[in-house]
Amino acid sequence: MTESPKATFFERCFPTAGRLKEQRLLHVTPADEELVLVYYEYELMTGDRHRNVEAITVRDGLIQEVQVFFGGKV
């Protein structure tokens, strides 16, 4: 049986996703026709809260690249 694209993404790109209790999008801003900036906050199971920004490149409806700019504790 083949894994779903979502399962593969989480396994390869976000193996610690199980540590998250909650994630909220704070701002989603288009930068140009292919680039979107995403500002979000998440809470870990420990109660710690953090904020990050991601620059996501999308072409033909598919994610081509994700750059994560790690923020810190809130």
Rank of each mutant, 00 (worst) to 15 (best):
T2K: 14
T2N: 09
T2H: 08
E3M: 13
E3R: 14
E3Q: 12
S4M: 04
S4R: 09
S4H: 06
K6N: 03
K6C: 06
K6V: 09
K6L: 12
A7K: 14
A7D: 07
A7M: 02
F9K: 07
F10L: 15
F10E: 04
E11G: 05
R12D: 03
C13K: 15
F14V: 04
F14A: 15
P15Q: 11
P15C: 10
T16L: 13
T16E: 14
A17W: 08
A17K: 10
A17I: 12
A17E: 08
K21L: 14
E22H: 13
E22C: 07
R24N: 11
L25P: 01
V28M: 09
T29K: 08
T29F: 01
T29V: 12
T29G: 03
P30D: 02
D32Q: 03
D32G: 06
D32W: 01
E33D: 13
E34Y: 06
L35D: 00
V36N: 00
V36E: 00
L37F: 12
L37N: 02
Y40S: 14
Y40I: 09
Y42A: 04
E43W: 06
E43R: 15
E43T: 15
M45Y: 03
T46D: 15
G47H: 11
G47Y: 08
R49D: 01
H50D: 05
R51V: 08
N52V: 05
V53L: 14
A55Y: 05
I56N: 00
V58W: 01
R59C: 10
G61V: 04
G61Q: 04
L62S: 05
L62F: 04
L62D: 00
L62W: 05
I63Q: 03
V66S: 02
V66H: 00
V66F: 00
Q67C: 08
Q67T: 09
V68W: 05
F69V: 12
F69K: 13
F70C: 04
F70S: 08
K73W: 08
